[in-house]
Design a protein around this nucleic acid. Structure first.
Length: 564
RNA sequence: CGGGGCGUGGCGCAGCCAGGUAGCGCGCAUCGUUCGGGACGAUGAAGUCGGAGGUUCAAAUCCUCUCGCCCCGACCA
């Protein structure tokens, strides 16, 4: 491809809105352009990268027996009503009516469509197991997109679905995907770690997320360097400290003016935060008030809490009036005397004696509050966030917390969808069974952004050969001044292209500085330079973009290098 | 949704507080010079100042409303 003809422009200045390196570089180098919040066009260069990533994914999913197909972007709402997700999912799903007044949705994912196909197509155990997949656009009206391609509203995802006779089949398909994902991310040049994850709105029994460590990542990971423990903080269950053993003392109200926070309270009383009880308040999507109690030295984990109370439509922080209506005083609150709220107490808080808790009176706390004696929780369960340094649940060594970007995930769905939609098969013995599903996603655009995050320097992108839009960029310097350079470059371009090398040929009439700077910005693995200098030295100069090593080499050698 | 910021030629920005004929750098076009690290000169094209309403003799500038984008938080298969 001739750069002079490429639908492309590079920018000299960084785009004002781009904060993350991947966003800045992909826009500046002419790979993508933003259309709206979380909505991007892939320009020819970006599209080629996306296609190369897609091809890697395709090869690996094909290799585990995946059959590629394509499912629609627009779905009838009735299908989502059948699965129950029409009501369960909030405003992130786009809903609209077609001209006939029928309720429709934009696809966020395709479990429903797969299950619908299953009930139409699969009748016999002979047709299973199978894996189907597609690359298809998803639209999720995220409340807030961010980070360029990291979190967008419209994106193409590879989603595959395993279809099995039973749980053992699902386990096998899950393992196949797990291994395929490890190969995919390795080929893409991504150092992804898999972590145990929450199943979220997918339901099901087990999930892993493949995470690329990145300080700008949205997820917090709990990792153990001593063993292989790795979990999303949403579900990470570390060992908790042993609570002190001491006599339960009678409660006692004390004045604690100006101490509405744990930090202020602990300082005022001269005690550790671990001797206090922290109360936080939420309301479920269907309007239930939830009071969560953790020890003062921990934070509430909303995912764990959401799961514990089986919150329909998730949780939101409660308003001050809602807290007051339940008989509690924000800043000085405890469940003692509260009513009309589900009280969930973290297991550690429940077993820690003589905590300081709110008195539900402004400016006062209660000493020696004991869960079970002074109030009765509705639930006692782990609802606390793992902290850096807490003991690993496997080996007891201190865990570390890291930020990560989720590049892929795998879910054991089980029979949730096939049960609701009635997708069954007849077994060999004539009995009818539900088909067992798994669901496995990789976002292509996010993967592209992650590759750039991991492979760039201060000059630009440094594509791994596996996803680079072109194998090399051929740069002719001073061609307009020295016709021999132009001729040599044209000849080399022709020869390499004929030899099957994907070449981006910078034939623009630009100054050497512009061309070399752009070549580094665009980030092809090899930069091949032809100039009066290189011709005098008997060939073209080849630069390894990653290492910066360069040298003049004969044309035959360059051809062999780029073909290999 | 809460908090903060920003919308002025393609890109990056100044001008706004103290209203008075819309500017700068880069890019773009033409010509000439230059040619291994974002060259130089000359000439030129290009802007409903996000939108609507209002105040005023006069609005990019003041007021009201509104749309959009970014960041933090909430949220997030």
């Amino acid at each position: 491809m001739r750069l002079s003809k490429l639908f492309f422009t590079s920018l000299r200045d960084n785009p004002a809105e781009a904060e993350m390196a991947s966003h800045r570089l992909l826009v500046r180098a002419g790979y993508v352009r933003q259309l709206g919040a979380g909505i991007y066009s892939l320009l020819p260069l970006g599209f080629r990268v996306s296609q190369r990533i897609e091809q890697v994914v395709r090869e690996e999913i094909d290799a585990i027996g995946g059959q590629e197909m394509e499912m629609p972007v627009v779905h009838p709402a009735d299908l989502w009503r059948e699965s129950g997700r029409y009501a369960k999912i909030g405003p992130e799903m786009v809903r609209f009516k077609d001209r006939g007044g029928r309720d429709m949705v934009l696809a966020m994912t395709h479990e429903e469509v797969v299950a619908d196909l299953l009930r139409q197509i699969v009748k016999s155990y002979r047709q299973l197991p199978a894996i189907v997949y597609h690359f298809q656009t998803k639209f999720r009206d995220e409340p807030r997109s961010r980070g360029g391609l990291i979190r967008v509203r419209e994106f193409v995802m590879k989603d595959s679905y395993s279809l099995d006779l039973d749980g053992a089949g699902l386990d096998h398909a899950y393992e196949l995907h797990y291994a395929a994902y490890e190969r995919i991310f390795k080929r893409l040049g991504l150092d992804a770690v898999s972590v145990g994850a929450d199943v979220g709105i997918m339901g099901g029994t087990l999930a892993h997320e493949f995470m690329v460590l990145n300080d700008a990542g949205e997820d917090t990971l709990v990792l153990c360097d001593a063993c292989d423990y790795a979990a999303n903080q949403q579900i990470a269950a570390v060992r908790k400290p042993e609570p002190p053993t001491e006599e339960l003392r009678p409660t006692e109200e004390v004045a604690t003016p100006e101490a509405p926070t744990i930090a202020a309270l602990a300082e005022f009383l001269g005690i550790g935060a671990d001797r206090t009880a922290k109360a936080t308040f939420f309301v479920t999507g269907d309007g239930r008030m939830v009071t969560a109690i953790v020890r003062g030295d921990f934070e509430v984990n909303e995912t764990k809490l959401t799961n514990a109370v089986k919150a329909i439509g998730g949780l939101r922080p409660a308003q001050a009036e809602e807290i007051a209506a339940a008989g509690m005083v924000p800043g000085y609150a405890s469940p003692i005397g509260a009513k009309g709220t589900t009280v969930v107490v973290d297991d550690l808080a429940a077993s820690s004696p003589n905590l300081v808790a709110g008195a539900n009176r402004h400016g006062y706390h209660l000493l020696n509050v004991n869960v079970g004696r002074d109030f009765t929780p509705d639930l006692v369960v782990d609802i606390a966030n793992a902290r850096a340094g807490d003991p690993c649940p496997n080996c007891g060594e201190p865990v570390v917390l890291r930020q990560g970007i989720e590049v892929g995930n795998i879910f054991k769905l089980g029979t949730d969808f096939t049960e609701k939609l009635g997708a069954t098969y007849l077994a060999e013995d004539g009995t009818r069974h539900l088909i067992v599903m798994g669901s496995y996603g990789i976002g292509l655009g996010r993967a592209m952004a992650c590759v750039v995050e991991a492979h760039h320097d201060d000059k630009g992108i440094v594509w791994p050969a596996s996803v680079a839009p072109y194998a090399a960029q051929l740069v002719a310097l001073s061609a307009s001044r020295d016709p021999a350079v132009g001729e040599a470059a044209e000849a080399l371009y022709q020869r390499l292209t004929d030899a099957g090398v994907d070449l981006l040929y910078d034939d623009r009439d630009e100054s050497p500085g512009v061309k070399l700077t752009d070549a580094e910005l665009l980030g092809m693995p090899w930069i091949v330079t032809i100039s009066p200098r290189s011709l005098a030295a008997g060939g073209a100069e080849v630069t390894d973009r990653a290492s910066g090593e360069r040298g003049v080499r004969p044309i035959d050698e360059i051809e062999a290098l780029l073909k290999g």
